[in-house]
Design a protein around this nucleic acid. Structure first.
Lengths: 146, 146
DNA sequence: CAGTATCCAGCTAGATACTG
DNA sequence: CAGTATCTAGCTGGATACTG
């Protein structure tokens, strides 16, 4: 048979769609910010997010040391903290500054790009705070019914 | 010893933080929209996202049938499509309408809440389209260095 | 047509141990 | 202090098969 099968056509459509998604800026952005620790780190570095209970933060972006970040994010493993910080540095969202004291001092700070991202996330936060209750109500109602 | 150990204190801080995150609206929102198929389904139902190559869409929210959604989203498995549609319905973001023809006809449509979410996502899309290139450039530069 | 049911491979977060 | 290295358990997406 010289004609393509339905399965082949579907496979090709999928391949094209995957290629499209791989370059879609929105999808790439979502892939980055959907990570739990990414948003939390950006949050504490920019103090955009609600305060954690019992923790006082000085407002405005500022540099923070590795250990301080670790304390601000209870439950983060060293692996995830380091891994996430590296990824954010790689993307130019934060800077990593090493001061050769003994022992070494490392501090992290938002870049302009990182601050810009944080600003955008505020829109997301606003929507969440004004609509998530409705979502939760819907969810409860749905579960009730079934 | 009557005093708590450092490990105990850390465990408690983690528990408190987890509790905080569990109710944080922004986190809940991110948990919902970070899913690949969620954003894509909301996208095609609202026609907010860029068109897929070779696919023509009529603008404006409208109802779509299960099979049509399936065609618009090459590569989605039946399991994921159904699962995601159910989740969105549960959250009140889309409606599911069953018409008892033979065989049965089912159509999905955005609710006002779903449209509102789509509107918010447009902000995200704008940021992505104007900044993701910079992120990608930073990423490439970082990889170059190492 | 619009699903449901089941099974499995792959990824990843976290725990643990070690170090310049 | 600020990491690196390694191992594993658990979740989730996708493939496959079946159905009112």
């Amino acid at each position: 048979m010289a004609t393509t099968t339905a399965a082949q056509q579907r496979a090709q459509a999928k391949a094209e769609y995957d290629a499209f998604l791989a370059t879609c800026p929105s999808r790439r952005l979502l892939d980055r910010i959907s990570n739990k620790w990414v948003t939390l780190i950006l949050g504490v570095l920019g103090r955009e997010c609600s305060r954690q209970p019992g923790v006082d933060g000085i407002d405005g972006p500022r540099a923070m040391r590795y250990s301080e970040l670790s304390r601000q994010l209870p439950g983060v493993s060293q692996k995830m903290l380091t891994q996430t910080l590296r990824a954010l540095e790689r993307d130019g969202l934060i800077t990593r500054t090493v001061t050769p004291t003994v022992p070494v001092t490392v501090s992290y700070e938002l870049t302009d790009l990182g601050r810009s991202l944080n600003d955008m996330m505020r829109g997301l936060k606003v929507w969440a705070e004004s609509h998530m209750n409705e979502v939760l109500t819907n969810r409860a109602a749905y579960d009730e019914r079934s």
